[in-house]
């Protein structure tokens, strides 16, 4: 598992991904970790297959008992099917996840972890002195979907928005936006169901000061590429399968 520190300040952001031991037939994912002095938040901690390499990677940054918070942007298996395993490994943790998916996500087993339901209009996650904003992103692509914004680090974690699929050794940041577009187009057209939801989300996100846009698959967008992505996404027709 490749680890890349993407923010270092009073707290840290670390991106985990490009797992070389991953079975070829499961989708590659990026996991993000927010680390404060005594706590640790895992954003979209990943599928059950990924649990062991992910846990091992986190142990480079925090001990098990400081993994206190998990966040699931939505209910997909590549996002959170590892829940049942985290549930047995962590003794004092919370899962922040969409309220509407509670009954569904509990199928993965969530007994020792406390399920903190996020209502449709979002909320916050407090991690010691750091306050993260939970930004609604419903229908992008899941009917109950959230992104996480860190106003201090200026990072927006966007789940499946901005996703692309590429070689296991691909760089973690977009370096040629024009070329990258082709790796994203079909995914967004096919996976994102609603032009209206997309418009509302873009409006909301344009008001945020973003240095890094961090999706769950593919590469992150930095600096001007963030605006390029929003413009490109704005102009894209989605929901093409009907």
């Amino acid at each position: 598992m490749k680890m890349t520190k993407i923010y270092e300040g009073s707290h840290q952001w670390i991106m985990f991904g490009r797992d070389e031991g991953k079975p070829a037939n499961i989708i590659d994912t990026n996991q993000y970790v927010v680390r404060t002095p005594n706590r640790c938040l895992l954003l979209d901690p990943g599928g059950a297959e990924l649990f062991a390499p992910m846990m091992a990677a986190v142990l480079h940054h925090a001990p098990v008992d400081q993994i206190t918070d998990l966040f699931a942007s939505h209910q997909d298996p590549d996002v959170i099917s590892s829940l049942g395993l985290w549930d047995q490994a962590l003794t004092n943790a919370k899962l922040h996840a969409p309220a509407i998916w509670e009954g569904f996500l509990r199928h993965y087993s969530c007994e020792s972890i406390e399920y903190v339901p996020i209502s449709d209009n979002g909320g916050t996650i407090k991690l010691e002195s750091v306050e993260l904003q939970i930004i609604p992103a419903h229908y992008l692509h899941s009917p109950g979907n959230f992104h996480v914004y860190d106003p201090q680090a200026k990072i927006l974690m966007t789940g499946d928005v901005g996703a692309a699929f590429e070689a296991p050794d691909a760089p973690v940041f977009v370096d040629n936006f024009a070329a990258h577009v082709e790796k994203m187009r079909h995914w967004h057209q096919r996976m994102m169901p609603s032009n209206q939801a997309k418009r509302v989300w873009i409006e909301r996100v344009r008001n945020l000061d973003i240095d890094i846009l961090a999706p769950q698959h593919g590469r992150m967008f930095k600096g001007d590429d963030v605006k390029r992505f929003l413009d490109w996404f704005d102009a894209l027709q989605v929901g093409i399968a009907v």
Binding site: F51, A52, P53, M55, A56, L59, H60, L85, Q88, A89
Partner: peptide, 9 residues
């Protein structure tokens, strides 16, 4: 899985 994680770590 925990054993595997411990080994990988």
């Amino acid at each position: 899985k925990f054993e595997l994680a411990a080994k990988m770590a």
